[in-house]
């Protein structure tokens, strides 16, 4: 594989979630986290999963990543069942989860070193390329604690993109950031997605964020976690977070969330 091909990346993956259910055993009770969840994600699609806390959206993401095993059902990635975590589906967490004993460059190299078939000089080139892509050219040698929250998440994004995963799983990656930084990152993530065409599954509880980023928005409701509705967002890109169209879509999503939330409360399920 040449460096050029490596930077172009493999085709994005198709992802199928088939009737997945999950229970968690706790001390006093069993929590039904996911109930018969099915979802098909096309190649290169940007899916955002929205729901209140406790709706199992993060659990679903963990199952797709292979970090958790479903009790029923399965996840297929490119017609292969997902059994373990693997570098074809990389996760970006809410906290950056960067390793404090490595600098920014070292963190991006970590995943690359686990990828076979590359020479070390090529790995360094790739790491530099992605740190440039997220706009951190000048901060390659910076220690993790010297970076701001937004910069940390940029490094985490570079780390997740560098080994060229076919699916990028993002678990509320911008939730801990301030509004200004977040809006900047919405722009960046759209620009990068246009360029890299990954399949992205993005979990959030922020409806505006969902409307701004998604091709399709999946609405989930809690106890047990279920998929309630799927919205298409067919606005042209790049989208402006503060535009009226986004606000309109967001208010539709909010209405749906309220309805299912109220429904769940009324039936006491």
């Amino acid at each position: 594989m040449s460096l050029q091909e490596e930077l172009q990346g493999p085709p994005p993956a198709k992802l199928v979630v088939e009737h997945v259910s999950k229970w968690f055993q706790q001390k006093r009770q069993t929590v039904h986290a996911l109930d018969d969840v099915s979802l098909e994600v096309a190649e290169g699609e940007f899916i955002v999963i929205v729901g209140p806390s406790g709706c199992g959206k993060s659990t679903l993401l963990d199952i797709i990543a292979g970090l958790e095993k479903p009790d029923k059902g399965r996840v297929m990635a490119d017609n292969q069942p997902v059994l373990h975590p693997g570098r074809h589906r990389l996760v970006m967490f809410q906290e950056s989860a960067l390793f404090p004993w490595l600098n920014a460059f070292g963190n991006v190299m970590f995943g690359l070193k686990l990828k076979p078939g590359l020479r070390n000089s090529e790995r360094r080139e790739v790491a530099k390329f992605f740190l440039h892509l997220v706009g951190l050219k000048k901060f390659m040698q910076a220690n993790v604690h010297e970076l701001s929250g937004g910069m940390k998440q940029r490094v985490a994004l570079a780390r997740a993109l560098a080994p060229n995963p076919r699916v990028l799983l993002m678990d509320e990656p911008f939730a801990a950031l301030d509004a200004m930084t977040r809006e900047q990152l919405y722009g960046d993530i759209q620009r990068i997605w246009e360029k890299r065409r990954k399949t992205i599954i993005f979990v959030t509880h922020n409806v505006r964020e969902a409307a701004c980023l998604a091709d399709r928005v999946v609405i989930m409701s809690p106890t047990p976690g279920r998929i309630r509705e799927v919205f298409e967002v067919s606005l042209p890109r790049p989208r402006d977070f503060n535009s009226i169209e986004i606000a309109e879509h967001a208010s539709k999503l909010t209405a749906a969330l309220k309805e299912y939330g109220a429904h769940a409360a009324a039936t006491g399920s």
């Binding site: 589906r89 996760v91 390793f99 004993w101 970590f110």
Partner: peptide
Amino acid sequence: PIYARAARTMGSKPLHKWIYVILPA
């Protein structure tokens, strides 16, 4: 625990995880 989780998603196996994540952490 998030360090170990992040490493696992990047393809880190138990021995690798011990040497390159748990020990330095």
